[in-house]
Amino acid sequence: MASTSAEIIAFLLTISGWVLVSSTLPTDYWKVSTIDGTVITTATFWANLWKTCVTDSTGVSNCKDFPSMLALDGYIQACRGLMISAVCLGFFGAVFGLIGMKCTKVGGSDQTKAKIACLAGLFFILSGLCSMTSCSLYANRITSEFFDPSFVAQKYELGAALFIGWAGASLCIIGGIIFCFSIAENSNSARRGYAYNGATSVMSSRTKVHNSVPDKTPPKHFDKNAYV
């Protein structure tokens, strides 16, 4: 019962983390910079993995898509690949998690379901690591440009998408670890139960065989002078 509850908690954590990781791809504010002048002239510059935009004080946004993937900076290409990999790995982890959980009716025997659930945990851990690496790489580029005195272009700060990606990656990693530990607990309990039942069956069979064999020892007769 405890392992089933652990699997359900792990599945909820991993699904929540995967949803957060997936939501960071279309999120606008990966990096943001605000220029405040008077009350009228205020502009917000922001960018994500796909475009860069500026929003004026009236709420009108002017965006420019990145022209070519081959002309992009290396860190943006790496972040794109890592985030897409994280979403794909989380999808397969969710499918294997549904099949491998003990509370579902598909997946075959308990040993097969345990292996599938362990595979789901590994997929979610890899998904969280990909998302964590992508957000950290992007944040490292922003902070290095921000604190570089020789960098004269527009400086940005960390956007909301990075914090969402870090949170989702943490949930995926924690849920995947719980998946793996719950499977290990099931394997240990199954081995202990099997050893105990085997010993009981062997002892009972020996007792039955010993009781079924008739006693062929001839009775001893003692006469009245036996103790003299």
Rank of each mutant, 00 (worst) to 15 (best):
A117K: 01
T112D: 05
S109I: 06
D56Q: 08
G90L: 05
G107E: 06
A169N: 01
G90K: 01
I40Y: 09
A6C: 15
G74E: 10
L129G: 06
K102L: 10
S136L: 09
T55W: 02
F147V: 13
S187D: 13
A114E: 05
T217A: 14
I15Y: 03
W30H: 01
W30S: 00
V106K: 15
R80H: 06
T217Q: 13
I40E: 08
A153K: 07
G74K: 08
I177D: 00
Y156C: 04
V87G: 02
T42N: 11
I9C: 13
N225A: 11
T27S: 13
S136G: 14
N48C: 12
V106E: 15
T133R: 03
C103W: 08
S144L: 12
G193P: 00
C103L: 10
W18T: 05
G168M: 07
A114V: 03
A190S: 13
Q77L: 15
I40A: 12
K224L: 14
D56G: 12
L72E: 09
S182D: 07
I164R: 03
I99A: 13
S150R: 10
S85W: 08
A71W: 04
F66P: 00
S57P: 04
G59K: 03
Y194G: 08
I177W: 02
C103M: 11
C135S: 12
A43C: 02
A226T: 15
S23N: 12
G165Y: 01
H210S: 12
I183W: 04
P219C: 07
A78V: 13
C118R: 00
C135Y: 01
V32Q: 02
I116E: 04
D148S: 07
L98S: 12
D223F: 07
I164A: 03
S144N: 11
E185M: 15
T143H: 12
L137I: 15
C88H: 03
R80D: 07
F181N: 09
L25S: 08
M132P: 00
A195S: 13
A169L: 06
Y196F: 11
A114C: 09
L89Q: 00
A139F: 01
V213I: 10
P214R: 10
S85Y: 05
L72W: 02
W30V: 00
V39G: 11
T133W: 01
M1H: 10
F181R: 15
V19T: 15
P26G: 13
S57I: 08
F11M: 11
D215S: 06
L98V: 14
I84T: 09
A190I: 06
E157P: 00
S204G: 04
P214E: 11
Y194T: 09
T42P: 01
K64A: 09
S134P: 15
D148K: 05
I84H: 03
V106P: 09
S68P: 05
M1I: 11
D215M: 00
